[in-house]
């Protein structure tokens, strides 16, 4: 039963559009799946390999801009951005990895954060290539109906789920966990830590970049402040994983559902809409203090807490 659970859930999700959901609900579903893709990517690097990145917006943005620039400069369909972004984002990941992977722990986190900001400022200033703050608009939408977009992102999500699962269950995954637990010990056992950290970073970056390229196609408009956003992309990515469950397969999915619905819920309450960062921040603080491994990761603890609540 447990073996077929991923297929079962993917099947249920694939059938969802058939029951005739409204356009708004389709949008929410697409966002949930997109965020779980990004969350899975971050989880590979942060959860399993222990390299907490604060700059996943960098990869997301590079992916999004690859598709956007391809469309804007050559007139090709922005969908070609998906395959193109794999190459471009991988190159960026190697470069960023070369610089940032010299840093350990919290310093790596800040190094990647700085990378995200550098790329944002560069995209704002290189107006000849990126159109700067004007952003890039995809003028012809491929489909009006959201169902097609839904299936594309679903395929992407299922593919990345299996890639992450395969990687983590292979030898590579054990190397990652060894690096997370103790980098020096891993090194002394003959694991080339720099190499495997680069592998984790590139893989994570490529998946995030694909989500970014999809975002360009789906939303039809990108600008540096949206796709390289620190709070709305990088931090939300971390929150998706932290809330859902660090180093679990289902964590990012659970986290994405909670975060997207929470964001929509807060935004729909008048007057409170402006305060959504406060709610996110408070949620983050509470999660870190009480459920440091996320809802899926701390499942036994959560159950115990709930039972205690019932008896008293």
């Amino acid at each position: 039963m447990k073996k077929y659970l991923p297929l079962l859930i993917a099947g249920i999700l694939a059938l969802l559009p058939l029951i005739g959901l409204s356009s708004y609900w389709m949008h929410i579903l697409i966002l949930v799946i997109m965020w779980s893709v990004i969350g899975m990517a971050w989880n590979l690097l942060g959860g399993y390999c222990g390299q907490v990145s604060f700059g996943h917006a960098a990869f997301f943005g590079v992916g999004a801009y690859t598709a956007g620039i391809l469309y804007n400069k050559t007139g090709m369909s922005a969908w070609w951005g998906l395959p193109a972004s794999i190459v471009v984002v991988a190159l960026f990941a190697l470069l960023i990895g070369y610089i940032c992977l010299r840093l350990k722990g919290p310093f790596f986190a800040l190094g990647t954060l700085a990378m995200g900001v550098i790329l944002r400022v560069t995209a704002e200033n290189l107006t000849t290539i990126t159109e700067g703050d004007l952003g890039i608009m995809i003028r012809e939408r491929t489909w009006i109906d959201k169902t097609y977009y839904f299936y594309i992102i679903l395929i992407l999500a299922v593919a990345s789920f299996f890639v992450v699962k395969k990687v983590i269950e292979s030898k590579l995954g054990y190397y990652f966990v060894a690096i997370r637990e103790d980098q020096d010990a891993a090194e002394s056992l003959g694991i080339n830590t720099t190499f495997y950290k680069t592998v984790a970073l590139s893989l994570s970056a490529v998946i995030t970049g694909l989500a970014g390229a999809f975002y360009t196609n789906y939303m039809g408009y990108i600008d540096p402040k949206i796709v390289f956003a620190l709070h709305d992309i990088s931090i939300v990515t971390i929150m998706v994983v932290m809330v859902g469950g660090v180093a679990t397969f289902w964590g990012p999915f659970v986290g994405a559902i909670i975060m997207v619905f929470l964001a929509e819920l807060i935004r729909s309450i008048p007057k409170l809409g402006a305060a959504h960062h406060t709610f996110f921040g408070i949620l983050l603080i509470l999660i870190i203090i009480y459920l440091p491994n996320g809802i899926t990761g701390d499942n036994p603890k959560l159950k115990r807490l709930l039972r205690m609540g019932k008896t008293t």
Partner: peptide
């Protein structure tokens, strides 16, 4: 607190920063 990710405190300060800026 014992957690899988050792950088919990750093992420916590991000949360504090978000709340302060938003308030």
């Amino acid at each position: 607190v014992d957690a899988i990710i050792p950088e919990n405190q750093v992420i916590l300060t991000v949360g504090i920063g978000m709340v302060l800026a938003n308030i």
